[in-house]
Every structure is written in C-alpha cells, then in structure tokens.
C-alpha cells in the first residue's frame, strides 16, 4: 500500500511539535489528502484517550522502601574519609576558600620565619675599638657608649654638687642610678668585656661599679659625709678622665 510521505507528521502535529509554518502546511495538506485525513482521525481519538490515562500509583510503603534503598546506596552527602586522595583533594587539588586563606597564612608565616632566620638575621656584634686602644669585642658599641654616658652624667653631677647644697639633690642621684638600672648594665658590660679579655675595660667597669654601689647605698643620715667620700673617690680614681678617654671625647 502506498503511504503518504507526510503521514508521520501526524504524531508531531498531535503532540504539538511543529512550528507555526509547518503546522499551517500540514493543515493544508490534511485538507487535500484523504489518506492522511483518515489516518489522522483514526489516530487522534485513540491517542487522546491514551494520553488522559493516569498511571496507577505505587503503594507508599513500597515507595518508602525504594527511596530508602537508593538513599543507602547513593547518599546525598559525601562521606568523610581519611583516604590520602580525599585529603589531597581537600587541601591541594580542590580546596575551599577558607582552606585557601588558611594555607596562605601558614605560607606567609613560614616565609617570615625563614626570612628572619636568614635574610634579616641580626647583625653580629661588631668589634668596638676606640681611638685609645680599648677593644671591646662582642660588646655592642651602642650599649657600651650608652652605659658610659649615663655613668659619666651621674658622676659629673655628684662631683659638681657642692657639700652645702640640698641633701635631696644628692639623694636623687642615687635614685637615678637605681632607676637607670646602671648596676645591671654594669654587670652586662663586664661579662661582655670578660669574654674579650679586655683588661683595661674590665678595670674601668670595676671602678665604675664600686662608685655606683656607693651612690646607690647612700643613706639620709650619712648623706653629707658619704657624698664627700664618694666625690673624693671619683677624683682619686680619675674615673671621669678614664671614661672620657675611653669614649674618645675631649675632657
């Protein structure tokens, strides 16, 4: 039996899968082709009847069992595992945004640590040598100079205070020596000087320490008497001269 070539378009027409132009063309064809028209009428009524059929619903308990079985086999949440591949994915291959931030912070900290240990390493203590041959190896020039200047200031003030001046002024020197931690600085500088076996410097620091101890232990009741003793000691030991000599300043 010879069939019309357009016959198969009946399906597309019924299920509304033709565009407007195709639809109009097919409708024109249907009006002219009796074979197609008969075929279409025969198809249309049955197709419409089938289409309106609803499927029988499954029993809820059966449906629950089905859902449960699928959920157990294919969970919607990824299980956490300690497999190396998962850890690699989590940290390196597919890290989440917070993990990336944390990793960047850790890398930065490692960088700073390495940098401080190598590139920005503290400079080695330079050998300190003044013009008069005092070599204070391994003692920072800065620390030693600062210490000597502080000591010089105190000693000068003590020497230049006349006995008839207010006692409180003398007491303030003692406090100044204590608050400035001069005794601690003395022991620090001495230990550094010992490391370099610098005899001259050790002797100077010993003399300074002696005088500073006297100043720190000054008391109210023996103030005038003690102050005079200290002044004499400073003058006799020529301490100020030695300090000036060491720091290279003009006396």
């Amino acid at each position: 039996m010879k069939t019309c070539a357009k016959q198969y378009q009946i399906v597309d027409y019924f299920f509304d899968e033709l565009n407007e132009i195709q639809k109009n063309e097919f409708e024109k064809h249907l009006a002219n082709c009796e074979d197609c028209r008969n075929y279409f009428e025969s198809f249309f009524s049955t197709a419409a009847l089938i289409k309106e059929q609803k499927r029988i619903k499954p029993k809820p308990e059966m449906l629950d069992l089905y859902y449960q079985a699928l959920k157990t086999k294919y969970p919607t949440r990824k299980k956490f595992s300690f497999r190396a591949k998962d850890l690699l994915d989590f940290l390196i291959i597919k890290p989440s945004f917070p993990i990336r931030i944390a990793e960047a912070a850790v890398l930065l900290m490692i960088g700073i640590f390495i940098g401080r240990a190598t590139i920005w390493k503290a400079e080695p203590v330079q050998q300190f040598t003044n013009g008069n041959g005092y070599a204070a190896s391994h003692v920072s020039e800065l620390i030693l100079n600062h210490y000597l200047q502080e000591t010089e200031m105190i000693l000068l003030d003590v020497v230049n205070t006349s006995p008839d001046e207010d006692d409180q002024v003398l007491l303030s020197f003692a406090q100044l020596a204590q608050y400035g931690n001069l005794l601690q600085k003395t022991s620090l500088c001495r230990s550094k000087a010992e490391e370099t076996n610098d005899e001259k410097l050790i002797m100077l620091i010993d003399d300074i320490e002696l005088i500073l101890l006297e100043i720190c232990n000054i008391e109210q009741r023996t103030l005038t008497e003690k102050a005079n003793e200290i002044r004499e000691q400073i003058n006799e030991s020529n301490l100020l001269f030695e300090i000036k000599n060491f720091t290279g300043k003009e006396i």
């Binding site: 499927r55 499954p58 449906l63 089905y66 859902y67 699928l70 959920k71 294919y74 969970p75 919607t76 949440r77 990824k78 299980k79 597919k94």
Partner: peptide
C-alpha cells in the same frame, strides 16, 4: 564524575521517581 558520591546521590534523588515510573511503564 570527579568521584563526589554526594553529587551522584543528589542526581539519584532528582530522578528516582522518573526512573521508577519509566521502569513501571
């Protein structure tokens, strides 16, 4: 496809009814 079992679980949940009804039909 990258091995995320949770993603496949979501696809299963999305299509579980359609697949069941097609199989039934």
């Amino acid at each position: 496809k990258m091995g995320d079992s949770g993603a496949f679980g979501k696809l299963v949940k999305r299509y579980q009814n359609k697949v069941l009804y097609l199989a039934y039909d």
